[in-house]
């Protein structure tokens, strides 16, 4: 399909981008990789008056090691992220999850920040940043602000990024020693979206799980933590059977929907099975 008419600007800095968004008024929109935006435009489900292309703003690109955390520019592509040595070493969960996103074409264009700002409950990366307690830097006309992962995802396709704001970067704390991670994605075809995804980070000390952080993809309108499994896992031995029984509450607190790929009952079943698998794999069980 052919999109409706729109104007296009390509600012060189975050400030210019914020100004351009403001100048464009209510109907202006950020575009980075375009992998979610272009389908909406072409199906005429969105008809913005101005597109502000942030894909080439230097400040929004690049990946930095801060010592105890890693900062990833929002306009880094999925490809940049999953092949980056800092990410592979210190935020392996993100590299693994990003490798499951779509196909090589999409990974070369789509961006980390775009995938988060889009707020798609079926996206793989929101669950990861929620599990890892990331913080988000957002720029707007009134300056910069920091938002925690817990507060970033608001509802279906709605995040803390306001219509006149831009997601600049995301900072993810390193996990440190004793932690293992795993992303279990379940989809109907190899480059399809997740029916359910489980991002697990597990700390094992002396054969026992001392801490677990679990983010769930596509189990509610926003990515959620499987908090009751996280508590249930505390202190259990890192064995497949114990993990399996602790994972039985994985669907607690989720609000699964039904669609062609899975109804609520099946989705909840998958949450339990995949949580057990992800935790087992992260714990080396």
């Amino acid at each position: 399909m052919i999109p409706s008419k729109f104007d296009y600007v390509r600012p060189n800095s975050v400030d210019e981008a914020v100004a351009a968004l403001k100048a464009g008024g209510e109907d202006s929109k950020v575009i980075t990789g375009g992998q979610s935006m272009l389908p909406l435009l072409r199906l005429r489900l969105a008809a913005p008056s101005v597109l502000v292309d942030c894909a080439r703003i230097d400040e929004m690109k690049g990946i930095k090691d801060n010592g105890d955390s890693v900062t990833i520019g929002a306009a880094s592509t999925h490809w940049d992220v999953l092949n980056n040595e800092i990410v592979k070493t210190h935020v392996k969960l993100l590299a693994d999850a990003t490798a499951t996103v779509a196909d090589p074409q999409v990974r070369h264009r789509g961006t980390f920040g775009g995938a988060l700002a889009h707020g798609d409950p079926a996206g793989d990366l929101p669950a990861v940043v929620v599990a890892l307690d990331a913080t988000f830097e957002i720029a707007g006309a009134k300056g910069r602000r920091q938002v925690t992962a817990k507060d970033f995802f608001v509802d279906y396709f709605t995040t803390a990024v306001g219509p006149d704001e831009i997601l600049v970067s995301v900072t993810i704390p390193k996990l440190g020693k004793g932690w293992g991670t795993c992303y279990e994605k379940f989809n109907r075809s190899a480059n399809g979206w997740a029916i359910v995804g489980v991002a697990a980070a597990v700390k094992v000390e002396g054969g026992k799980i001392t801490e677990a952080r679990i983010g769930l993809t596509n189990c509610a309108s926003v990515p959620v933590r499987a908090s009751s499994v996280e508590s249930a896992l505390k202190g259990v031995s890192a064995s497949a059977t114990e993990i399996e029984s602790a994972s039985q509450s994985a669907a607690d607190g989720t609000r699964a929907t039904s669609d062609l790929g899975a109804d609520k009952e099946y989705r909840e079943h998958l949450m339990r099975v995949l949580t057990a698998r992800a935790v087992s794999c992260a714990a080396g069980a």
Binding site: A190, N191, G192, W193, L260
Partner: peptide, 26 residues
């Protein structure tokens, strides 16, 4: 993978490649 699905009003629910699953090499 593939199957065209209509709802009872005649809406084609598999009207794009997001829902009509054509497999790829992997």
């Amino acid at each position: 993978y593939e199957g065209a699905v209509y709802d009872s009003d005649g809406q084609l629910l598999t009207a794009s490649f997001a829902d009509y699953l054509v497999p790829s090499a992997p």
